[in-house]
Write a protein that binds this DNA or RNA. Structure first.
Lengths: 199, 199, 199, 199
DNA sequence: AATGAATGAGTTTTCATTCAT
DNA sequence: TATGAATGAAAACTCATTCAT
């Protein structure tokens, strides 16, 4: 399966992209395989030529997206900048993904993060937590961050905040103009970094 | 429907509680109506005597729990304590619910965001956001909180953080001993209130 | 599952009998589950209420029929008659089943050998062989039959002969009037018996 | 189709032989066209270049094998030996085929003899019956065999016996060492012959 | 109120066959 | 001749919901 002609790869992508749109529109469960096929403009059976099941499609979407995001996040760790700045960059990566491909994020947020499939993927999510955890830890070691908060909890809090904002966008409860995206990024970063309290 | 004998009410509860356990165990979609019935120790058909659909059961669980939590959160608003302290109390309410009924939280966390039903419930979730939003706003007005962050975004961030921690407990990725619950509460509150940065 | 109300049992039978007719008409593979249902005059889904799969239906037909035939054959063993006469009775039982329920035999004959399921049922076939084997063996011990032929081979030969005749009837290549059934019985018995009989 | 280069003919054979192995392994229905192709080491589509359908492959296997066996059996008729000896030779031909190509026999026994395809082939099977029938008939005419048994029934009984023994070997319920094959041949022949023979 | 058998529309998946290259 | 991607018509099975008792 590793070896695929460019034409094959292209068609596989087409199906995957169509699935993202279809899942985003109706939700994974409500979305029929036939809709993915017609959205992709291919025959019903071809979906099963490239994927073994509807489930595998969702899983693939998750895995491919996630590993992409992970690469970006782990690149931030390499940056020679203060922990606070690294933290900001991570937030930017996550929130900007929304603007780049809202459908994708919609699927990720709605279907993947809380689904039973995920039990299998936990490891991959774990890596994202790990990266942020290490950033916080280094910030603590360098004296930039207070050290009375477990890095793991800090990581959870940051990701939770980001996910909630994404969800709000997904649900249409919050504006997602460029300006608003900026504002959201600043809000998360400044709250987490500096807190709400006036100094 | 409004008039129910105590015996009826009791059986209804039994079905509802059974549903919470069953949904928690396998997820809403994977859980069959028959499993709810046998978990409750009642006949298959009886489930449909008390509820019009499987959907309605989830909705009921959601609504009843949520309104309970909402009442508790809104009570906090009445408290004549600083905004920071109100914020702490809200966190405590949410996180303590986990210890009281983990299955319930599991269902809420896992199913609510993806369910299309939820769109209808958004209003109720909205109220919870609203409460927290007002707390933040009052904190800003009283000069206790900085005012360069939109209250709505602050509310999102807090709930997101709490939800992520709950999810971690649900997924078994994070300890949930009493001590850990305390620690988590403190982490959320102190980060949100004071930020990570050393002052 | 062992406990079934008479009404249930009756409906189960109805489905089973309908399946025999439907399988006989078109063959197991070509027969659709829907045809069984409508042949039985029940809803599609009810078939699955009583049986877990189309496969299980065939298996059940096979098992139930076979155990019935087995009981009859084993009863012959109890008879205090010469081995040659016991052998005749066994042939009569097998061949008369055709007259009683041709559809049933048609299904048995056509599907049994190819079904992979049957591997599991081999045990039951084995018992039938065993009975005939013991009859031959006792015939040899009593000096009625020659003893230079393995009882197991003799049993195979008898059943093979019977099955081929049944198949011929099924395929319509051989008349199956009462008279012809008699003639076939006599042919098998006299060929096999006189061949085995010590001169 | 009649004109085929040696190279083509060879590839056709390769597919046919692969099909025999594949059908023998999993049964005709459970065997996928792709398995035949990969077993033969050719591309999927090539199977359809040489055969119009999966069905035709089975049919071809049957026809080619059968005509070979038929030729051998009909050659026996020419032999100037007693009917009893001719009968023995026919049994030997059928049973020895097993040793030569068990997979082939497995397919013939499992798929062909009882399948719906066969209706079309009945004529060819008929010829085999015919040959044995004539042998018996001549034996009766020459006074070697008793004449109170219809030759057709005798032929059915012989083939049935042989087929059952083959099936037992296929199912692994009976040893098929060379010695056992000899023994089986002798058992069939002596039971059938001595039974038929005038005393 | 309580039971669980009955219903059947809806879905995924399979796979023989075709066809463009 | 050779390849294997593309097609889409089937078919088994599921399961929420209904309903007779």
């Amino acid at each position: 399966m590793a070896v695929r002609s460019p034409a094959q790869e292209q068609k596989r992508r087409r199906i995957l992209d169509a699935a993202v749109r279809a899942f985003a529109r109706k939700g994974y469960h409500a979305c029929r395989v036939g809709e993915i096929a017609s959205e992709a403009g291919v025959a019903y059976g071809l979906v099963y030529h490239y994927f073994t099941s509807k489930d595998e499609i969702l899983e693939t979407i998750f895995r491919e997206t996630w590993s992409q995001m992970l690469t970006a996040i782990e690149a931030v760790e390499e940056d020679r900048v203060p922990a606070g700045e690294q933290l900001r960059k991570v937030c930017a990566i996550v929130l900007r993904t929304w603007k780049r491909d809202p459908n994708l994020v919609r699927v990720l947020v709605r279907e993947v993060t809380r689904s039973p499939h995920i039990q299998r993927e936990v490891e991959e999510i774990e890596q994202a937590y790990g990266a942020l955890e290490r950033i916080v830890q280094r910030g603590q070691e360098s004296g930039e961050f207070r050290d009375d908060v477990q890095p793991r909890l800090a990581a959870l809090i940051v990701y939770g905040a980001l996910e909630e904002i994404l969800t709000s966008w997904v649900m249409g409860q919050l504006d997602d103009t460029d300006e608003e995206v900026d504002r959201a990024e600043r809000a998360v970063v400044s709250i987490v970094r500096d807190g709400l309290r006036v100094r």
